[in-house]
Amino acid sequence: MSALPLPAGDALLWRPEPYRIERVRRDLADTFSLDLVPAGGGAPLAFRPGQFNMLYAFGLGEVPISISGDAEAGGPLVHTIRAVGPVTEAMRGLRAGAVLGVRGPFGSHWPVVEAEGMDLVIIAGGVGLAPLRPAIYYALRHRRRFGRVCIFYGARTPDDLLYKAELKRWRGEFDLVVDVTVDRASHDWAGKVGVVTRLVEGGGYDPLHTVALVCGPEVMMRYAARALLARGVAREGIFLSLERNMKCAVGLCGHCQLGPHFVCKDGPVFRLDQVERLLAVDEL
């Protein structure tokens, strides 16, 4: 009857753990953050920057959401969610005290430990700043382990900038380059207007000793990678976080495939040279 050993924990593979919403933050018109703690008490699960959880709204559905809090703070699990469909819309209506299901954490992570000793360039587009925030927290906690640290952030308009207060604080309090640009603005916006890839030309980092972490719409990431390469950053030093349709999160539903990769378990964070050729093929 050829029984196979079932790795520990797999019995829970599909089964969400109840987590209680401790706090809700309204980040943007359509984007909000939830602080989650285990409904039955105990410590929230541990994760590494760049990983994601599957969040379950009872009876309605499950969505992959990256973890946007501090991996070393030991506090609640923080998820920043953009309402784009029925499940995330329903989550937007939830208040503190409501319960969600959580499965995770899943996927690969930003190579923040491996990047120590190097300059760190973080490039975010739109809500792509959320999956990068744990990497920023890591760099801030261990600031002395890095050379120059640059955050380049692009969004649609000034009203679409995520974590505005934090961006301001990071710019003021730490030894960081924080450069923000928007695609369009009215005249009262005192910051930059233009695409985020232009910021890559500045920042004063040393391209030969740089690790770059990039997250945003796929088109923006392609161009950001090109701008980094043009500055002389090595392919092996550029990391992207990809989005595909992640449903099972463990590589067995087949939906998130990109060539040989399951984005849910081999990614979402990939080194550029792992996916560069695949991203260049239409409809892959």
Binding site: V127, R156, D183, V219, Y223
Partner: peptide, 9 residues
């Protein structure tokens, strides 16, 4: 790229 409105909802 701005025209492409990459971050649109």
């Amino acid at each position: 790229l701005q025209l492409a409105d990459l971050y649109a909802r």
